[in-house]
Amino acid sequence: EPEARKIVEKLINNGLSPEDVKRWAEKNNNPEVKKAAEEYQKR
């Protein structure tokens, strides 16, 4: 999901860690963003 990846990169560029992004995604019920954050961590 390229859109989710863009969101993850934007949040990380704004100073969030991938863990923060995953928590944000869970709080906002956004499994695509959570998955993208996990993939981002593996890179």
Rank of each mutant, 00 (worst) to 15 (best):
E1H: 11
E1Y: 13
E1S: 13
E1P: 12
E1T: 13
E1N: 13
E1D: 12
E1G: 11
P2K: 15
P2G: 14
P2Q: 15
P2M: 15
P2T: 15
P2F: 15
P2I: 15
P2A: 15
E3F: 07
E3I: 10
E3V: 08
E3L: 10
E3A: 11
E3W: 13
E3N: 12
E3M: 10
A4P: 08
A4W: 12
A4L: 05
A4E: 02
A4Y: 08
A4T: 05
A4N: 03
R5A: 12
R5G: 06
R5F: 13
R5L: 13
R5H: 12
R5I: 12
K6P: 03
K6A: 14
K6T: 11
K6R: 14
K6V: 11
K6N: 09
K6L: 13
I7M: 09
I7R: 03
I7T: 06
I7E: 02
I7K: 03
V8S: 01
V8I: 06
V8G: 00
V8L: 13
V8T: 03
V8Q: 01
V8P: 00
E9T: 07
E9G: 04
E9Q: 12
E9L: 12
E9M: 12
E9S: 07
E9H: 10
K10P: 02
K10R: 14
K10H: 14
K10D: 13
K10A: 14
K10T: 13
K10C: 14
L11V: 00
L11Q: 02
L11G: 02
L11H: 03
L11A: 04
I12D: 01
I12A: 01
I12E: 02
I12G: 01
I12P: 01
I12S: 02
N13W: 09
N13M: 14
N13F: 11
N13I: 09
N14F: 14
N14E: 14
N14W: 14
N14A: 15
G15E: 05
G15D: 02
G15L: 04
G15Y: 02
G15C: 07
L16T: 03
L16D: 02
L16P: 00
L16A: 07
S17E: 04
S17P: 02
S17H: 05
S17F: 03
S17M: 04
S17A: 05
S17Q: 04
P18K: 03
P18Y: 14
P18I: 15
P18L: 15
P18F: 15
P18Q: 04
P18D: 03
E19F: 05
E19A: 08
E19N: 06
E19Q: 07
E19H: 05
E19G: 05
E19T: 06
E19P: 03
D20E: 13
D20L: 05
D20P: 00
D20R: 04
D20H: 05
D20Q: 12
D20W: 09
V21M: 04
V21I: 15
V21N: 01
V21C: 05
V21D: 00
V21P: 01
V21A: 04
V21E: 00
V21K: 01
V21F: 02
K22A: 09
K22P: 00
K22S: 06
K22L: 14
R23M: 09
R23Y: 08
R23S: 07
R23V: 09
R23K: 11
R23Q: 09
R23P: 00
W24K: 00
W24Q: 00
A25P: 00
A25F: 02
A25Q: 00
A25W: 03
A25I: 02
E26P: 02
E26G: 03
E26W: 04
E26T: 06
E26Q: 06
E26M: 08
E26R: 02
E26N: 04
K27V: 11
K27L: 14
K27A: 13
K27N: 10
K27H: 09
K27E: 14
N28P: 01
N28D: 03
N28T: 11
N28Q: 08
N28K: 04
N28H: 13
N29K: 08
N29W: 04
N29Y: 05
N29I: 04
N29E: 07
N29L: 06
N29T: 04
N29Q: 08
N30A: 13
N30R: 15
N30D: 07
N30L: 15
N30G: 01
P31I: 11
P31Y: 11
P31G: 06
P31R: 06
P31F: 10
P31A: 10
E32W: 12
E32F: 11
E32A: 14
E32N: 08
E32I: 07
V33F: 04
V33N: 01
V33Q: 01
V33G: 01
V33L: 08
V33E: 01
V33T: 02
V33M: 06
V33H: 02
K34S: 08
K34A: 14
K34G: 09
K34E: 06
K34C: 11
K34P: 01
K34W: 15
K34F: 15
K35F: 08
K35A: 11
K35Q: 09
A36K: 03
A36N: 02
A36G: 02
A36S: 05
A37Q: 01
A37N: 01
A37L: 13
A37F: 05
E38S: 05
E38I: 11
E38D: 08
E38K: 04
E38Q: 07
E39D: 09
E39T: 05
E39Y: 07
E39L: 08
E39F: 07
E39I: 07
Y40T: 01
Y40D: 00
Y40L: 06
Y40Q: 02
Y40A: 03
Y40E: 02
Y40S: 01
Y40W: 14
Y40P: 00
Y40I: 05
Q41D: 06
Q41S: 09
Q41E: 12
Q41W: 09
Q41C: 12
Q41M: 14
Q41V: 10
Q41N: 07
K42G: 07
K42E: 08
K42P: 05
K42N: 10
K42L: 11
K42S: 10
K42V: 09
K42F: 09
K42Q: 12
K42D: 07
R43T: 10
R43Y: 14
R43D: 09
